[in-house]
């Protein structure tokens, strides 16, 4: 029975991301794997809140089903909420996350188009 489970202290918005990710992947002309999927948000002891994990989860599924080469995601930090049609929506707190990405040595940062100006305040 194909189903998707999210573990790692997700709140309600993170739980709902299952539905958004599934629709977004299908509506982007990609295939959603008909398998049992467990998404682990590590570290499991930290509470996860908000819809910002939608896009990373979707990419994780695409990488695991080999639709996207895993090495394409090397050194990248991805943020974004998905809508059902696959477009990426604004998320809050992009500036502090961009600052963190820089501190942690990420080479690439993918943010919603709307929030690009905010992220650009942190020089690469």
């Amino acid at each position: 029975m194909p189903k998707i489970i999210i573990v790692g202290l997700p709140d309600a918005a993170v739980q709902e991301s299952r539905e958004r990710v599934q629709s977004a992947i299908k509506n982007s002309g990609l295939s959603f794997p008909r398998k049992h999927i467990t998404v682990n948000l590590a570290p499991a002891s930290v509470r996860k809140a908000g819809p910002v994990y939608d896009l990373p989860i979707a990419l994780g599924i695409l990488a695991a089903s080999e639709q996207v080469p895993a090495e394409a995601l090397e050194g990248a930090l991805v943020l974004g909420e998905l809508s059902l049609d696959g477009s990426v929506r604004h998320v809050r707190g992009v500036l502090p996350m961009a600052a963190l990405a820089r501190e942690e040595g990420f080479e690439r940062l993918f943010v919603p188009a709307e929030d690009a100006g905010e992220a650009a305040l942190i020089p690469i």
């Binding site: 990609l30 974004g80 477009s87």
Partner: peptide, 26 residues
């Protein structure tokens, strides 16, 4: 990036996304 599809096409190197070039605020 505007959508999952755009990001997908970027990652499979079919249609690369341009880095943000908008005006950084003065």
């Amino acid at each position: 990036m505007p959508s999952l599809q755009a990001l997908y096409l970027h990652l499979i190197e079919e249609q690369p996304l341009a880095p943000y070039s908008g005006r950084t605020p003065d």
